[in-house]
Amino acid sequence: MSLMEILLIIIPSTLLWAAPLIFTGLGGNFSERAGVVNIGLEGLMVIGAFTAIVFNLQFDSVLGDATPWVALLAAMVAGAIFSILHAVASITFRADQTVSGVAINLLSIGLALFLVKLIYGKGQTDIIQKSFSKIDIPILSDIPVIGDLFFSNTYYTSYVAIFVAIIVWVIMFKTPFGLRLRAVGEHPMAADTMGINVTRMRYIAVILSGALGGIGGGVYAQAISSDFGHATISGQGFMALAALIFGKWNPLGVMGAALFFGFAQSLSIIGKSLPFLENIPSVYLLIAPYVLTILALTGFIGRADAPKASGVPYIKGKR
């Protein structure tokens, strides 16, 4: 097997697995930059995946080829609505943000499976007919070598994810909104003094994280799993959280980390068919994202520091 052939397998697969992580990680980025820890990303992905699959199954006869994209919008809305629970608990009612996130995770999987059984009378949905499919991107795929490697046999969603990452970076670091967002997460009292509505900013940030987490789940469900059951989302949200930390709370860093974790995930799945990897136990690839995140936090790979006020409820007038 030549290097070219290997790359032709690995690159599209990496992009495929990275897309949900990028979306969800960016969602976490909004929320944590505003000072709200979001352990509930996993649960938001579950809601997104569930909504996307149910919507897809219901409307694929009406919407035709546009189904997965519209379903993705539905997933986004569902994720955003669901995340309001986390916002209300952790911002207004000053709940411990980690506990509230755990509750979101428990609630989402319970609710989603409950509804699946209610709607379909069984523990798992049918397989969707209209999933995101592999395509050759027009024009770009005609470029020699690069076109074959990066733009053939791939998914639009991966490129949307990368594009969104760049937009989020611009929003976060080049706009007044982004500056306020970061101020609220670093020093909410100073931000409040300057006239920024801390509560409103945090609500917006958490809802954005829900929307992006929902998209992440919707992409995963419609591009990778194709149905919804209890194990559809198992750890993707936490891996996105890892990507967020490994990417040092910077949207482009998150994208890079998500691509890298996607690479590790796809290697752990397809590695057995590759000549020089078949002897390496896949367990090393499976645990790589988590071990690297711990190392990054410890400071062995450039120290990762969380936004200062992250995890602390803001109580007006309290010093």
């Binding site: 629970l85 608990a89 709940a95 506990v99 509230s100 755990v102 509750a103 428990l106």
Partner: peptide, 8 residues
């Protein structure tokens, strides 16, 4: 869990 967390 949710209600205990949001006991405020």
């Amino acid at each position: 869990v949710f209600f205990v967390a949001a006991s405020y």
